[in-house]
Design a protein around this nucleic acid. Structure first.
Length: 292
DNA sequence: AATCGTCGCAACCGCATGATT
DNA sequence: GAATCATGCGGTTGCGACGAT
């Protein structure tokens, strides 16, 4: 793409235009078209001069952000899939708030979107747990409950889909292959999440289909109950990670069908945004009762 | 129907770093 | 090597949508 010599407006003139007020706030459809049109013809880069040449009264920064986060053809919108959630949790636990680095491993997702996801969903629940997202308490909850639970849901979704569809050879999220980091402890390439006897979850080369929808967004229990619930328990480091192994915890003598019938949270399918569903909550409660 | 509070997300801001002059 | 410019990143804010009262 030719981004050389883009200066269509002499510097002196452009500084005059700088005096002209720059537009801020939400982008209009016309502005979007201008930007798309211009980039289609001339390519990205040199954002300040691009903004001028495209006739946009925006800063180069603003144009770049609009393009990267919204207009780019390969950008994906919509719910974060279960696999993506798992990957975000995993990568964040490793890299912290390195959003752009994390985004590199989620095709079509932007750092901004992942950051927003983390702030609005994950941090909210840390708040409900009355602990900091960086605290060991919260990290343990993620690692020993949330992530295995995600694995289980992904497996369930895969099992359901495999009964009706032929196996595919790559992990797929939407139309994009999901690429797990090369330095992942279990190796790179297209991988499937699965349970493990010595880990809470693993990713291994296999086939999978994206489990759709935000698992937080479709679960039950009012937020206030959720917060109250956690205020009454303390989360310790899990002494026996295998207990949390996806697919195994049903064997702990819990009758989830019964629980679901008797759990008041399940009566309120309100679409509120919660990390755990009722099974998780009850399971967690059982675990902590054991450890008390 | 009106008001209020909360949530989610797009966009902005400041700073750091790299590239160019 | 210094100055300037461009880009990228992470944190923060503003606002529309939506639900509760």
């Amino acid at each position: 793409m030719d981004v050389q010599g883009r200066d269509c407006v002499p510097k002196a003139q452009s500084s005059e235009e700088d005096q002209m007020e720059l537009r801020r706030g939400p982008w209009t459809v016309e502005e979007d078209f201008k930007l798309i049109d211009y980039i289609a013809t001339h390519g990205e880069g040199r954002w300040n001069s691009l903004a001028r040449c495209a006739g946009l009264k925006r800063t180069g920064k603003s144009c770049r952000l609009r393009w990267l986060n919204y207009l780019r053809p390969d950008v994906r919108h919509g719910n974060i899939t279960l696999e993506e959630q798992l990957l975000i949790l995993e990568l964040h636990s490793r890299w912290g708030n390195r959003w752009s680095k994390i985004a590199q491993h989620l095709p079509g997702r932007t750092d901004n979107e992942i950051k927003n996801y983390w702030r609005t969903r994950v941090q909210k629940h840390a708040k409900q747990l009355k602990c900091d997202v960086s605290s060991k308490q919260f990290k343990d909850t993620m690692r020993y409950l949330w992530m295995p639970r995600l694995v289980e849901r992904i497996q369930a979704a895969n099992a359901a889909s495999s009964t009706s569809t032929a196996a595919v050879t790559t992990a797929v999220v939407g139309t994009e292959p999901m690429v797990f980091p090369d330095d992942h402890h279990l190796g790179g390439g297209a991988q499937q999440v699965t349970s493990s006897s010595n880990n809470n979850y693993t990713l291994e080369n296999s086939s999978t289909t994206a489990a759709s929808s935000d698992s937080f967004g479709t679960q039950v229990s009012p937020v206030s109950d959720f917060a109250d619930y956690y205020s009454n328990i303390s989360i310790n480091h899990n002494p026996n990670p295998n207990c949390f192994e996806a697919g195994n915890y049903h064997n702990n003598g819990l009758d989830f069908q019964c629980l679901e019938q008797n759990n008041p949270w399940l009566d309120t399918v309100d679409g509120s945004d919660n990390i755990f569903d009722a099974e998780d909550l009850y399971f967690l409660q059982q675990q902590f009762n054991f450890n008390m």
